[in-house]
Design a binder for these strands. Structure first.
Lengths: 216, 216
DNA sequence: CCATTGCGTAACCTACGGTAGCGTAATATC
DNA sequence: GATATTACGCTACCGTAGGTTACGCAATGG
């Protein structure tokens, strides 16, 4: 079922080889993570020697960057298309469905996006990939919140909540033994989010219980 | 502010050394991930040589296991305490607050729990650490759903949605430039979840838009 | 027949997990 | 107080894996 490219498995045109390596890289990065994936194995699975990978991507990081970039583009395009029109409610459910559809179609890509940070070893922390997405959603949410008369500063909270919701459910969904169809899951999520947002108090007051402090 | 154990920084009693190594390991695993963290650096930061780590934990995996186990215990205890009593609504908000409090108090531990899987290299995928939590929540939810007359099979969806929500918001919260107090964030999350759950239709019907298919 | 493209061989070198064996400080025992 | 015993720790090393590179060969197209 994997692509039987051409008649000759031996030599491939550069573009095809590139595509193949990206695909293999995506799969391996997904199941092993960046650090635990070796260029050797990537090359081996492509029936190719290591230097090929370097020729095409300049190294492990380069390949990883390409993989991540493609996935980001893919999911961003899907979701942006889904939220581009319709009522707010439709946009919400559309976004959830687009997300889940992406998860369904590209489970490996999704896993890569969920996994830990790229090899950038700067001092600070770098936001996970899903983070960017949440920020984009945050932008949309700020607008919606403003027009609806809610506290705009709370928008990022809900944006990250929603993205996290979908992301986690998506992860569970890919590994569930008896996964319901995407539409059902999306409708549940959207219902939860929508109803939650609709009936949101303007200013939720904490009903503070005892706040646990660290026991030594 | 870190513990000034005894007068002599040179030699430490076994228990103290152990604790120190766990702490250092937690921090490093948090910021670098498992694979990218070297025993050498752990030892170096503890002003100790590598064999010490091996002596106390049997190796890298051993230390990692201890770190993870402690965090799991910590967060599980906090949350279970929070949901042990009170009205459902209080339990929900209490759980969110407990989670965020944990995140606040032990950001490194939280980062470790969020990061990718342990070094177990069995064929299949292993559930992330947050996954267990979601499953526990799923158990509670199944019960609640049954008593409330909702579809029990949808419980895991909402369980993972809730955990993902809190986890993602928690992550954002630790890195936010101007983070609101935990109580406020928790109340927002709890409000979203609670209102969403309360006004949930018994059987949400998907208002299916065009479902995006992969464009080749 | 020659150039360009695609690729393999064979290393290099660093880093890291793990281990063996040897001190040295503190405590116990006589 | 001297000596044995234990607890704690270090230096030095091994094996290997993995990223990266230098160089040379085979196929393809004009």
């Amino acid at each position: 079922m994997p692509a039987a490219r051409t008649s000759k498995p031996g030599r491939l045109p550069a573009a095809a080889r590139r595509a193949q390596l990206v695909e293999i890289g995506r799969r391996l990065f997904a199941e092993r993570g960046y650090e635990a994936t070796s260029v050797e194995e990537i090359a081996e699975r492509a029936k190719v020697s290591k230097p090929i990978v370097y020729e095409h991507f300049g190294g492990k990081e380069g390949l990883y960057a390409v993989v991540v970039d493609r996935e980001i583009e893919h999911i961003a395009a899907s979701i942006e298309a889904a939220v581009s029109s319709g009522s707010p409610r439709e946009r919400l459910e559309g976004a959830a469905l687009a997300f889940l559809t992406y998860v369904e179609e590209r489970p490996d890509g999704f896993a890569v996006l969920l996994r830990d940070a790229p090899p950038t070893k700067r001092g600070g922390e770098m936001p996970a990939l899903m983070y960017d997405l949440a920020d984009r959603v945050g932008g949309i949410f700020s607008e919606l919140f403003r027009t609806a008369g809610y506290d705009e500063k709370a928008a990022p909270i809900y944006a990250h909540a929603l993205v996290g919701m979908v992301a986690f459910v998506g992860q569970w969904w890919t590994e569930a033994r008896k996964p319901p169809p995407a539409e059902v899951v999306a409708s549940h999520i959207a219902a939860l989010a929508w109803m939650g947002l609709r009936h949101l108090p303007k200013k939720p007051s904490p009903l503070v219980k005892t706040r646990r402090r660290a026991p030594a």
